[in-house]
Computed example of a mutant assay.
Amino acid sequence: MKIGVLSDTHSKIKRAKIALDFLIAEGAEFIIHAGDIVEPEILELLANCGKKYIAVYGNNDAHLAAYHNDYNLVQEPYYFKLADTKFKLMHLPFYMTADAEVVIFGHTHAFEIEFKGKTLYLNPGEVCARNKALSECVMLEVKSNKFIVNYYTRKPKKEFKLQKTYEFKRQKSE
């Protein structure tokens, strides 16, 4: 299963739409937003993208509680199962325990990837291009025997470009 992952869109609605459209064009079957959504319009983009999605509140999203029942918004840490895989979704990197196969987080505005033991830790970086002059997102492909992560960046007024592909052998717990 291909899962599009983005985070830290902040108030950049156009950049969020470009990233979301790109991930869907690349075959994303599910979308995960790792927080700091900020704008209700970004929730609307997620809800109308034609894919199932989940989004976690970030430290800049308290005002979005008014929309909680209208969108698939969750509080951190949030555990769920997708593609026969246990996920933990959060914004702040405070719950970095290996109690899921995939731990997705945001907040730092920096792409991070690490595979320790049986757990993949993944931060897709920032869509908003606040800390650097580029937007970032990832495609996580979950296969029965491995995780494949494609890391993409986009400079202003350019197309998204694959920067690197990571593969990790999956070690299923019995």
Rank of each mutant, 00 (worst) to 15 (best):
I32G: 04
I18E: 13
A28V: 01
E41S: 09
F87H: 07
K88D: 06
K86R: 14
L46T: 13
I18A: 02
A28Q: 06
I32Y: 00
A34D: 00
F22A: 01
D21G: 03
A66V: 14
F80Y: 01
G58K: 06
I54K: 03
P40W: 10
N72Y: 14
I37T: 13
A34M: 03
Y67A: 12
D70K: 13
Y79D: 10
F80D: 00
I37G: 02
G58Q: 08
A28S: 15
H63P: 06
C49R: 05
G50Y: 02
E39Y: 11
Q75F: 12
L73Y: 14
P40D: 10
M90L: 10
G35P: 11
N69L: 15
G27I: 05
E29V: 12
N60W: 03
K52D: 15
H63M: 06
H91A: 10
E39M: 14
Q75C: 09
P40Q: 07
G58L: 00
H33N: 03
G35I: 00
A66S: 10
I32C: 01
Y71L: 02
H33L: 14
L20W: 07
A65C: 11
G27P: 10
P77F: 05
D21H: 07
V74R: 09
N48K: 13
E44Q: 13
A83T: 11
T85F: 01
D61Q: 12
L46D: 11
I31E: 13
H63N: 11
H91D: 05
H91F: 08
L46M: 04
L73M: 11
D70Y: 15
H68V: 12
I24H: 00
A55F: 02
N48A: 03
H63E: 07
F22R: 00
E41Y: 00
K86E: 03
K86M: 07
L89E: 03
Y79F: 13
E39T: 14
T85P: 02
E44V: 06
A19P: 09
I32P: 12
A55V: 15
H63W: 14
E76M: 04
Y57I: 09
K81S: 13
A65I: 09
F87C: 09
K81T: 12
V38Q: 13
I54D: 12
D36L: 08
Y79K: 11
Q75V: 12
V74Y: 06
L82K: 11
M90Q: 05
N69D: 13
A34H: 02
E26K: 12
I31D: 09
D84I: 08
I54N: 03
V74I: 14
L89R: 07
F22V: 03
I18M: 05
C49H: 08
L20H: 05
H63K: 09
V56G: 00
V38T: 13
A65G: 09
K51C: 01
E76S: 10
C49Q: 04
E29T: 09
A66P: 11
I24S: 00
A19K: 00
Q75E: 15
L82T: 09
K51W: 02
I37W: 10
H68T: 08
L45D: 01
K81I: 11
A83W: 08
D36N: 15
D21N: 12
T85M: 04
L43T: 11
E26Y: 01
N48W: 01
I18Y: 06
E44H: 15
N72R: 08
I31F: 11
L82Y: 14
K81H: 05
L43D: 08
H91L: 03
